[in-house]
């Protein structure tokens, strides 16, 4: 049982280190999947827009972490 728990904890740790960062990324992906079509964003703009969303999440999280630890 503890081996299963360890495996699940390892698996969780693969993708989640900072919960707010993971939620930010998942939020961006949900926006890309559901909001872009509703907003009628042009087909060729959806990929770059997803990249910009994720880049913003990354930059904001790195800035906040650096401030907190600095």
């Amino acid at each position: 049982m503890s081996a299963v728990a360890t495996a699940l904890r390892d698996l969780w740790g693969l993708f989640v280190e900072d919960t707010s960062f993971t939620l930010g990324m998942l939020g961006s992906l949900v926006i890309a999947a559901f909001a872009f079509p509703v907003l009628r964003l042009g087909d060729a703009w959806r990929g770059p827009a997803l990249f910009l969303l994720l880049a913003a999440v990354l930059l904001e999280n790195v800035r906040r972490t650096a401030q907190r630890r600095g």
Partner: peptide, 23 residues
């Protein structure tokens, strides 16, 4: 793709924090 985004960006974040001297 979703798994790679979660995994790759987590890795990139950590590398940035290390290169910046935070970790």
């Amino acid at each position: 793709g979703v798994l790679l985004v979660l995994f790759g960006m987590r890795w990139l974040r950590k590398a940035i924090l290390r290169a910046g001297g935070v970790i």
